[in-house]
Design a protein around this nucleic acid. Structure first.
Lengths: 214, 214
DNA sequence: ACTATTGTTGAACGAATGTTCAACAGTATA
DNA sequence: TATACTGTTGAACATTCGTTCAACAATAGT
């Protein structure tokens, strides 16, 4: 009842304690939301703290450094994207050609064709040249991505006959095409539709097993 | 001779006056060097001023705002890249197929496969979501780029027979592939060689006029 | 109910940011 | 040589940044 008392034992707690893991996850999500909302440039510790409804000090307490938090966020997002695509490929079952189609369709699904995701990715690419930590995460995750594509293409070529393009190179081509189209669509969505992106990517795969190419 | 006199009429001038155009160009080049050296994040007005050997105030005097300077730099770089590619295409003369090969080779030339250029480009892409000015420059320059590709493909298909892929879509595919490979090479140059990039792009063009595709 | 633990706070700090503007100084003109 | 013009300077300003750390408070163990 006394006016100097802000919150006595009878009122609600001023904050809820969480385990380190819970809080780290929450901070990571808040950081991603901030990068999305205001770009990596304006994504400050204070902004993340506000977004996570937490004080400034807590971030450095849990992650030590801002860079460590961003690197953790990168790993988290990259894992999510690849896992989601792999899940769709696994769900479709079928032969290699059908799996590749699922892979392509997953790449052009709304989850991935997202300006927010693009902004996050740009931020990570930018940080890569500065931070060894981020560069390592990229190398590791991108290798995994390309390995999946290469595996599917090798499987396809075993069935439908060899191509002049070895699986490694063909995989680089397909992932380059997918990434390039993804990039361009995110920069300027009016240029072409996701369906057209799928048509183009399917054409590449078809060309891979066509007699004229190999 | 007096110690309060810094530089009297007898000594060298403390700075050289330049015309507005000269100075604007010099500041723009300094800004690009800064983006390359330390990334857009650390590329401050003070850093640009130091690089251009000029005082902080001069930048805002000539460009009004940092954003205006960066946008001007974007336009400058984009013009350079496209002009250089078009020059190579024009030099080779020949038919559409040969011009497309020149276009592809130019895209994978060391001038373009450059970590510095990539860093500059990433910076511009990042700023695009924030700045209307930068977004406008992108739309304009990228449209010009794609128009060149589309023109060459249309010319090729008139000679060698129509494809199921209309020139517009085929051009989007080729520029997507070129950009995607460029992106991936810049992020991780060990993955594949520029020559392999050329092989992949040529394969796409070949597939465009192959009977199986159209 | 008391204590120990530790997740959490937020004021404070030093460094850096973009921008402003009154004063300065080179340059061409008269 | 004096004058007007304007390119140029750099201190100053108001913010914002990432990080630190002593104090605080929610919770679990007793």
């Amino acid at each position: 009842m006394t006016d100097h008392a802000r919150t006595e034992s009878s009122s609600a707690p001023r904050y809820r304690r969480q385990t380190a893991d819970e809080r780290r996850e929450a901070l990571l999500q808040a950081a991603l939301r901030c990068i999305v909302m205001m770009g990596i440039e304006q994504c400050s510790i204070r902004a993340i703290a506000r977004e996570a409804d937490v004080s400034v000090g807590l971030i450095n307490h849990h992650y030590g450094t801002k860079e460590a938090l961003i690197a953790a966020a990168y790993r988290h997002v990259a894992d999510d994207v690849l896992a989601q695509i792999e899940r769709r490929v696994a769900d479709v079952g079928g032969n290699a050609r059908e799996k590749l189609s699922a892979f392509i369709r997953a790449s052009f699904s709304p989850v991935n064709l997202d300006a927010d995701l693009f902004r996050v990715w740009l931020a990570f690419w930018t940080l890569q040249s500065t931070s060894k930590e981020i560069a390592a995460v990229h190398k590791e995750r991108y290798g995994a991505y390309r390995a999946v594509v290469e595996g599917l293409i090798a499987e396809l070529q075993e069935r439908e006959g060899k191509s002049r393009l070895e699986p490694r190179l063909a995989a680089i081509g397909l992932s380059g095409l997918l990434d390039g189209l993804w990039l361009e669509w995110c920069l300027e969505p009016e240029t072409f539709s996701p369906e057209e992106g799928i048509v183009l990517s399917e054409a590449w795969v078809d060309a891979l097993v066509a007699p004229s190419m190999g």
